[in-house]
Each structure stands twice: as C-alpha cells, then as structure tokens.
Computed example of a mutant assay.
Amino acid sequence: MMELHIDVSWILQVAEAAGAMDTVDYNEDGYTDLLVGTTLEDVGTVADAGFTDVLYGGPTGLGTGPLKATHLEQGQGAGAIKASAPEAGDRMGDAVAAGTTAAGEPYLHIGVPVRPSAP
C-alpha cells in the first residue's frame, strides 16, 4: 500500500498518514484529482471514525487550481454521508474507488468496513 502524508496549508486537517487512494477527474476540469481515505483519524471524540478527501489537480499538480479540496465526513455535507453519523471504528475510506460511468460522469465509492453487530 502506498502512503501519502497530507501536510499542506490548503488541507484543514492536521498531517495524517493516508491509506486507500484512487484518481479521477472529479470536477471535470481536465486535471486528475486524488481521492484519499484517512481511516484512522478521529472525528471529534469518535475514535477511528475516518474521513475522505478529494484533492483537486491543477495546471502544475495537486492544489494548484482554483478548487483545492473537498472534505467528506459522516454527518456533514449532503446526501447519504450527511445522513450517517460517525461511530468509533468506522474507518471511513478504508477502501475507495473513483472513476467515470459509461456516460462519462465521475463517481466516488467510499468504503466503511462492516463491523460485527453486538450480541
């Protein structure tokens, strides 16, 4: 597995070792964007809830275009991600996939491992 240490001024989180990654031109600007899962990050007081970021590419690399990054975290944003709540050990972003549909529309898949139910 490759590891990316995110330590740049345009990422709001502290530097963390990232895990799963994939690429796609998510904002359809002609530059490759990087989807990064940071699975062992605590979200508030919730241990190892994890989150995922889209780091946008630009003319000379990541973060060099007008759009820098989009942070995806359970309980924030829109849709299914906003509707869910982070739980300890969720490890959001443990697996990620990005690509385009047959119609050319970009997509992101963000995995949250299934934990055994409590008895």
Rank of each mutant, 00 (worst) to 15 (best):
M1I: 05
H5F: 14
D7R: 11
D7A: 15
V8Y: 15
S9M: 08
S9R: 10
W10A: 09
W10G: 06
W10R: 13
W10E: 11
I11L: 14
I11N: 14
I11F: 15
I11T: 14
L12P: 10
A15M: 05
A15N: 10
E16W: 05
E16H: 12
A17E: 11
A18L: 02
G19S: 08
G19F: 00
A20V: 08
A20W: 00
T23R: 08
T23L: 07
V24F: 02
V24H: 00
D25N: 01
D25K: 00
N27A: 01
N27P: 00
N27I: 00
E28G: 00
T32K: 03
T32F: 01
L34R: 11
L34T: 07
V36N: 07
V36H: 09
G37Q: 07
L40G: 08
D42W: 01
D42K: 10
V43Y: 01
G44S: 06
T45S: 12
T45L: 08
A47W: 02
A47N: 06
D48T: 08
V54I: 15
L55S: 03
L55V: 02
Y56K: 04
Y56D: 03
G57Y: 00
P59R: 00
T64G: 01
T64S: 08
G65K: 02
P66H: 02
K68I: 03
E73N: 10
G75F: 04
G75P: 12
G75D: 12
Q76S: 10
G77T: 08
A78M: 09
A78K: 09
G79Y: 06
A80N: 11
A80W: 11
I81Q: 10
K82D: 10
A83P: 02
A83S: 13
S84T: 04
S84Q: 08
S84A: 15
A85L: 11
A85F: 07
E87V: 04
G89C: 10
R91M: 14
M92Q: 13
M92L: 15
A95G: 12
V96S: 05
A97G: 05
A97N: 06
G99P: 02
G99Q: 03
A102W: 08
A103Q: 10
G104S: 04
P106E: 09
Y107N: 03
L108H: 03
L108R: 04
H109M: 14
H109K: 08
G111T: 13
G111S: 14
G111W: 02
V112R: 15
V112N: 14
V112M: 15
R115D: 04
R115V: 05
R115C: 04
P116K: 10
P116R: 11
S117W: 10
P119I: 13
P119G: 13
